[in-house]
Simulated scan of single mutants.
Amino acid sequence: MHKIIVTGLTGFVGTNLKKYLSSYEIESLSVRYIPNQKIEINADAIIHLAGKAHDLKKVSRPNDYYEANFELTKQIFDSFLKSKATVFIFMSTVKAVADKVDGILTEDTVPNPKTHYGIAKQQAEEYVLGRKLPEGKRVYILRPCMIHGPENKGNLNLLYQLVAKGLPWPLAAFQNKRSFLSIENLCFLIKNLIENKMVVSGVYNCADDEVLSTNELVQIISLALKRKSRSIAVPKSIISTIAKIGDIIRFPLNSETIQKLTENYEVSNKKIKTALEIEKLPHTAQYGLERTIKSFINK
């Protein structure tokens, strides 16, 4: 295997992956959905990262998600089936399965996405899994949880800003378990899937080995900032009242923010580790998160 085509190469995952796969010839494929377009794939493998990310500001049209995440994936996958490429990796998301998790999310969890983003990704997954694979081709659908790494703020930014300003963490009364995914571990998994012909085609969750509570995350941020962690266990009933006020007036702590900061979202990575015959991923969640936080500080 020599040449790999990557869609979405200029994004956060793409730029990190390009560095990680430096021993390969990497070619960017710039694509957007156009009805009936033909896409040429002249490579040994294709990694499809391009798509419309979840819109936190809620200004996107629903159709944008279906065109970018479902229709475009169909076109690229059909082109892969006709090409000489032997490996297709599609970057889906755990949100294609569930927005809230009771217990631990595995590949056997029955998908029930609630957002247009998650539904479109799930439709793309179903299309890919529903096509007959020619002999010699391998297809991997990856479902990463929240990806972290240098330069990618995402949902960590709110927490970082709070600790950096020296404000006490008010939600210490909430005990939760969350899975994260360091960009280094994701790149490691993708490289191994490309190179290991013995891994069967299918759907694989991607997550770091450890789960962390948001309280532990606040401690990690405090350590990286060399500050003493300040936490207050404000009673949940009071937090609930503040959240309702925050829903009415513009305030950082509203119902949605509190849910994101305190919810459980535990993801099992057992299937992909078993398939690759590895016991542990190269980096711990804490290592990856510390690197992410330090990149905020250096900026």
Results as ranks from 00 to 15, higher is better:
Leu171His: 06
Leu171Thr: 04
Ala172Ile: 00
Ala172Lys: 10
Ala173Glu: 11
Ala173Asn: 10
Ala173Met: 03
Phe174Val: 01
Phe174Met: 01
Gln175Leu: 09
Asn176His: 09
Asn176Met: 02
Asn176Pro: 04
Lys177Gln: 11
Lys177Trp: 00
Lys177His: 02
Arg178Pro: 00
Arg178Tyr: 06
Ser179Pro: 02
Phe180Ala: 04
Phe180Arg: 02
Leu181Ile: 13
Leu181Arg: 07
Ser182Trp: 03
Ser182Leu: 05
Ser182Ile: 05
Ser182Val: 08
Ile183Phe: 04
Ile183Asn: 03
Ile183Pro: 07
Glu184Phe: 01
Glu184Gly: 01
Glu184Asn: 11
Glu184Asp: 13
Asn185Met: 06
Asn185Thr: 06
Asn185Ser: 08
Cys187Pro: 15
Phe188Gly: 00
Phe188Pro: 03
Leu189Gly: 12
Leu189His: 07
Leu189Asn: 10
Leu189Thr: 14
Ile190Tyr: 08
Ile190Leu: 08
Lys191Cys: 06
Lys191Tyr: 07
Lys191His: 13
Lys191Asn: 12
Lys191Gly: 09
Asn192Ser: 10
Asn192Ile: 12
Leu193Ile: 03
Ile194Thr: 06
Ile194Gly: 05
Ile194Asp: 05
Ile194Val: 13
Glu195Val: 12
Glu195Pro: 11
Glu195Cys: 04
Glu195Lys: 13
Asn196Glu: 13
Asn196Asp: 14
Lys197Glu: 15
Lys197Gly: 14
Met198Gln: 15
Met198Ile: 13
Val199Ile: 13
Val199Pro: 13
Val200Gly: 11
Val200Leu: 14
Val200Thr: 15
Val200Phe: 12
Ser201Phe: 10
Ser201Trp: 12
Gly202Asn: 11
Gly202Tyr: 10
Gly202Val: 00
Val203Ala: 00
Val203Asp: 02
Val203Ser: 01
Val203Trp: 00
Val203Arg: 04
Tyr204Ser: 10
Tyr204Arg: 09
Tyr204Ala: 07
Asn205Ala: 02
Asn205Pro: 06
Asn205Lys: 05
